[in-house]
Design a protein around this nucleic acid. Structure first.
Lengths: 254, 254
DNA sequence: ACGTTCATTTCATTATTTGTAACGGCATTT
DNA sequence: AAATGCCGTTACAAATAATGAAATGAACGT
């Protein structure tokens, strides 16, 4: 295992769980020696990616991460371009809308606008969405590179509910259907009682780079609502693609 | 130089300059061997912190950074708490307002609301503000830990304009004045023609964790405006502290 | 088709990292 | 108040991962 992989896994562990973590807990969680863990932390602190409370000696993620993320956003303004569209769709549908971006580890939820209704679906920014168990994942896969799609189809497909798709054949069907329709429909794959509709956000080469989804409680989602959401996410995804890659003068509509 | 330091310096270089960088340019910028640079990149890619364009082979910052930054924000909701206050102050003053957070490397500008006027001050999120040359830096130092303040006072103080403070004695005076007033006044220290007023954002232990500043063109900033901005940034900084830590960070009772 | 440029891989050498173990500070317990 | 246990921190020999020169391969322009 490379040293940088170890260091980054420390960041992951610091990000999960409590805001601040003690050295011993951290070492236990990642399985490195106490001394090793600390040396890695010292390196990360020197770079500003980790901070240590002077008093309690606890470790937490550092502002350097925010800085790097902001620099990335400056180079590729995904949030700046997409967030207004997400908000418009949330206002239009009255349901929770979330936006995700592809990464090696999975689809990362990068922005969420929750429904204002009492009974609503909740998603946390930073969460990784499983490809096979979410509408976003299926929509993404329908327009992803063949290599990525194949990896998911041959990989493990853990069940989160009794409804989670668990075999490659069924998943392939859903993917094909999504490709045909332009949007995917996820029914209780990750959480029971939730129906999601998602569309892929396409990059300059028409390969998916992320997804946008409407997630609503099943009890108030009629078939007509699903169709309406499908139209909405496709339009929103296209709008985001246009704003990002300038295929058309992306006109903002609040 | 530790391996993780090298890897992170790669991220820094990727963040500067163009959105995508070639391997050779990258190796040249950081001064590592081409093979070494690439191995580090492979590690970073495996963790999602860097991405590589399949076609052009160019490297760019990855979505994993956004994920880590979001996890940090979930643990310590600095932006969620502070941004509304920044926006209110910007609306109230009509000038550019920016928010910064302390990091080992300096004050990181994490949010900016620019003035709507044509002649305005512009700051980019992600930029590192030099401590000795900005109102934010001086406000921060006035309420920082002694160790941090001493480090800046004894460190190098590069001049950005003819007005940049260049010696420890003058800087110490400004810091003392800022501590007395509760806010700092920066006159053309980083850029000519700009007057900034800043106040420190205090943490639970009354130590500064960041700063909020109003930056305006000198030509339309009268003495009364400076005073008005001073009152505004102090109130805003206090408001942010209260929102972050639940209660007014109580000054020690006499 | 050829030559050039750049990314990628290989392999012996080197340097960094690693784990054991001991040290020191701090706080709680007895 | 003394002792004890816990946690963070440091030192050193063993081991492992990182390194750079050079070779390979692929893509591009001439």
């Amino acid at each position: 295992m490379s040293t940088v992989a170890k260091a980054i896994s420390l960041l992951e562990v610091l990000g999960r769980g409590a805001p601040e973590t003690a050295l011993a807990d951290l070492a236990g969680s990642v399985g490195f020696d106490k001394a090793t863990t600390r040396r890695l932390l010292v390196s990360l602190i020197a770079q500003g990616l980790v901070e240590q409370d002077e008093g309690t000696r606890l470790y937490r993620l550092g502002a350097g991460l925010t800085r790097l993320a902001l620099m990335r956003e400056a180079q590729f303004p995904f949030l700046r371009m997409a967030v207004p569209v997400v908000e418009a769709l949330a206002a239009e549908t009255g349901e929770t809308v979330h936006l995700s971006e592809y990464s090696k580890r999975g689809l990362i939820s990068v922005h969420v606008v929750e429904s204002t209704k009492a009974n609503r679906v909740s998603v946390s920014p930073g969460d990784v969405l499983p490809m096979h168990a979410t509408a976003s994942g299926i929509a993404f896969l329908a327009f992803a590179e063949e290599r990525v799609r194949a990896a998911v189809l041959t990989g493990p497909m853990p069940a989160f509910t009794p409804f989670t798709i668990g075999d490659a054949a069924t998943l392939a069907e859903h993917i094909a259907a999504a490709r045909g329709r332009g949007h995917s429909i996820g029914s209780q794959g990750l959480e029971e009682g939730v129906i999601s509709v998602a569309a892929p956000i396409l990059g300059a080469d028409d390969v998916a780079i992320g997804a946008i989804a409407v997630a609503a409680p099943r009890v108030r989602t009629a078939k007509s609502d699903v169709e309406r959401h499908g139209v909405g996410v496709i339009a929103a995804a296209r709008e985001i693609g246009e704003r990002l890659f300038g295929r058309r003068p992306g006109r903002k509509q609040a």
